[in-house]
Simulated assay, not measured.
Amino acid sequence: MSKAFTKETDADGDEQDGLLPEIPAGAKNYITPQGYARLRSELLQLIDEERPKIVEVVHWAASNGDRSENGDYIYGKKRLREIDRRIRFLTKRLELAEITDPAVHHGHDQAFFGATVTYAEESGQERTITIMGIDEADTAQGQVSWVSPIARALLKAREGDVVKLVTPLGAQEIEVLEVRYPAPPGLTR
């Protein structure tokens, strides 16, 4: 039989089918304490709650006899594979995680991991982004991964610096207007 018709293993796709970028070779998986807590919470919820429920459904469905036409069994096994793949992914990412608290830079004007940076493009348009970890960045919330081109251009820049941003449309200069960090716990502004 041709290899084209064989079933792929469950281990394939551990990088979540390309939904999240891979960590660059030799780089650390920087993450905020809040991001780490969210990933860990998801992992524990999958292990302690969701997976046992699905195992119970699959066990019940298997006891009903013919599995070839048993929707509960077929769906349950598929869902178990998805859960196990996500558990493996989260476990790997958490093992590689380097927790970095952006609050340690509170009051500084240089952009590091966790900074919220306001910058002006050549057109004069101002944008604000927060530099986050690969596994926690949400572009809809104005968060970008620290490995993204804009974050790479802004990292280590100070307020007032003009940096070069290389995009598919060509290079442009952007000016750093403001750099902010969250306040450490217990410190009010």
Rank of each mutant, 00 (worst) to 15 (best):
L90N: 07
R79C: 01
G35Y: 11
A4R: 11
P52E: 07
R79S: 04
G76F: 02
S2C: 06
L80K: 02
R81L: 09
T130S: 08
T128S: 07
L96C: 04
P102T: 03
G142P: 00
Q16D: 11
I129D: 06
F89N: 13
T100H: 08
G124F: 11
L43H: 01
E175I: 01
L154A: 01
Q172F: 02
R38P: 00
M132G: 02
A111N: 12
D66G: 02
K77Y: 00
D12C: 09
T139G: 03
D17K: 05
R127W: 03
R79I: 01
A111L: 04
K28E: 13
I87E: 01
L46S: 00
F113D: 07
G124D: 08
A115I: 11
D135I: 00
T91R: 08
A4L: 12
Y73R: 03
R180E: 09
P102E: 04
D161H: 01
I150C: 00
T32V: 06
F112Q: 12
T6C: 01
H59Y: 07
V104T: 13
V176K: 10
S145V: 04
N64S: 08
R152V: 14
K3L: 15
Q16G: 00
P184A: 05
A97H: 03
E56K: 15
E8F: 03
A171P: 12
Y181K: 04
R189C: 06
D72S: 12
G26T: 08
L39E: 02
K53E: 10
K156T: 15
P52L: 08
Q143S: 06
A120I: 00
A4T: 02
L80F: 02
A151S: 13
I83K: 08
L155P: 05
G133Q: 05
V104M: 11
P182M: 07
N29I: 04
G170Y: 06
A37T: 07
E42P: 02
E121W: 08
G65F: 04
H106G: 01
G124A: 04
A157D: 05
D66Q: 06
V162N: 04
G160I: 03
F112R: 12
D17L: 12
T139N: 14
W146D: 02
Q141E: 12
I129S: 04
V58L: 14
Q16M: 14
T32E: 12
I134L: 15
T116N: 06
E95G: 09
H106S: 03
V176R: 01
E15K: 12
Y30K: 10
W60D: 15
T128N: 10
I83E: 09
V144I: 15
A140E: 15
R86M: 10
E22V: 10
L90S: 02
T9Q: 00
G160W: 10
W60S: 07
T6P: 00
E15P: 00
G114A: 07
E69I: 11
T128F: 03
L43W: 11
S2D: 13
P52I: 04
W60L: 13
S2K: 14
L46I: 05
V58Q: 03
R152N: 12
G124K: 13
V144H: 12
V55C: 08
L94K: 04
G76A: 04
D14M: 08
T32R: 10
R67T: 15
L39G: 04
E121D: 09
S123P: 03
